[in-house]
Amino acid sequence: MSVRLGPRALSLARAYAELTGPGLGGIVLFAGRVRPDRVAGARVRALDYEVDRTVALERLRAIETTARRRFGAERTVLWHRSGSVAAGEVAVIVGAACAHRDPAFRAARYLIEELKRSVPIWKEVLAPPARRRRRRPARPAAR
């Protein structure tokens, strides 16, 4: 059982290592990255994740406990960044390890959906101010 919530970068290799073990034949890992989308004309530079830390940690632990009980996941990972996360970086990793693939997929799906639905984490887009477009001079009316 592994819950993390903090500013440090997340490693998929470390998450995978947390999930390996004898008899665990199905491992599902999901990583959510910050997309460099365009918002209001400016490229997203980063997302700033705000958390209510006490409540968020409690919720993350409760979600893991349920995933283990409901899907038989023997090992789970539920990691989320806080603070500023640059475009292209990983903001969240969830993972589940079971004896077989089907419960591992279902457990991992449950982990990420419950995290998004019920954990007090909010994101704010950090983008450079949009450049002002120069107005083209009006064309003369067609004759």
Partner: peptide, 8 residues
């Protein structure tokens, strides 16, 4: 006061 969540 917790507005709707938006993690991930």
């Amino acid at each position: 006061v917790h507005p709707p969540y938006g993690g991930g």
